[in-house]
Write a protein that binds this DNA or RNA. Structure first.
Lengths: 196, 196
DNA sequence: CATATATTAGAACAAATGTTCGAAATAAAT
DNA sequence: ATTTATTTCGAACATTTGTTCTAATATATG
């Protein structure tokens, strides 16, 4: 099975939507990928739709949408220092915004700017931005964000040793911290961004 | 001047594009905002276009775009394995796409999926995605992408020791590799993405 | 080579859609 | 109240566009 045309068509549609803001018509696709007949394009579109890579509304023009398309982003707030007493996502804690693809977006996402090198062995560096899903409670072995004493947010591994639960840094020079009532889980770390 | 209908139309268009991924037709707008005639809608669209709030292509269906909604992201290709002989950014090397904010975008950007752990001490892990700027030549101390023997792309530190230049991994178990004629610099690594 | 499968082409059709014009209705201004 | 501007309507028209069917061509498969 020759996927060249199919891929060519798919990426053309995606780029058209990204750059122009709307889907191409079938004849525009035909011209772009050097097919003389609209039905040839239909043939490939049907296959792409069967594969779940595209969607369209029947009998409606320019309603092709790429299911994988990243064109729609939503922004999530970046939290820096936690102002004493203020709720985590209060305006005064916000130092910026980061955008995530809509297919990965949920209302529960926010981002945290890493301060320090306690997770360096996990590849999380000072000033990296980590995205946190408040809707997912970190489990053993996960990297999670935790609130300590309601004033400080920290990112650590969560692990159980014996029958106690610990915040475990990824850096030998720091020590495990037992999770007591002054530690509240915030959510699970799901992705990371770094400017180099 | 009564702005109710105009605003109603504008927000309907924006929502339709956000939720469905494509613009409504004029008749769909008419029905939604309770106008009986398509030309009534045209009347408002003309005003919205004059105000610069909307754009459209003449004689093309569903090409309304909200200028406020234009995607602030552009996609850059992700390159995986390099097919022997094929140019770096050839279609056959492409394994996906990643989006970067438009203010950081340039035509010189592309992304590379990291294979292996040779840069682990620089916080660059297996399967991370690094974005590379082909327009910036990596300097001493920079992390750069390099093409080896025109068949393999690698990400390493660039460093000068004595009067020789080396590709320097960030992992003790790998060794420096002297830069000779079979190593071509591709560009500088500028950012990094990771799914956790 | 013969057969099946995948791909492309061509044409014709029906429906969706944008465009235009004049007139009617409504609201605003004088 | 009269005039003016704004908004809506209706209908007709020209294109654009998606859909479908059949046949031709290329590509793979045994």
């Amino acid at each position: 099975m020759k996927l060249n045309k199919q891929n060519e068509i798919l990426t053309f549609i995606q780029h058209k939507i990204e750059n122009e803001g709307y889907s191409p018509s079938i004849r525009e696709i035909a011209e772009k990928v050097n097919l003389k007949s609209t039905s040839s394009v239909q043939y490939h579109l049907d296959n792409l739709i069967k594969k779940g890579l595209l969607s369209k509304k029947p009998n409606q023009s320019r309603t092709l949408t790429s299911n994988k398309l990243i064109s729609t982003f939503k922004s999530v707030p970046i939290v820096g220092e936690i102002a004493a007493g203020a709720p985590l996502l209060a305006e005064e804690n916000k130092i910026g915004e980061i955008s995530v693809p809509q297919d990965k977006f949920s209302e529960n996402l926010f981002a945290l700017k890493i301060n320090g090198d306690s997770m360096i062995d996990a590849g999380i560096f000072h000033e990296d931005i980590v995205v946190i899903d408040k809707g997912v409670e970190p489990k053993n072995g996960d990297i999670g964000a935790f609130m300590i004493n309601e004033t400080e947010a920290t990112v650590k591994y969560l692990d159980t040793i014996g029958n106690k639960r610990y915040l475990v840094p990824a850096n030998k020079i720091y020590e495990n911290q037992e999770i007591t009532s002054n530690v509240q889980p915030i959510g699970k770390v799901v992705s990371l961004f770094r400017d180099i």
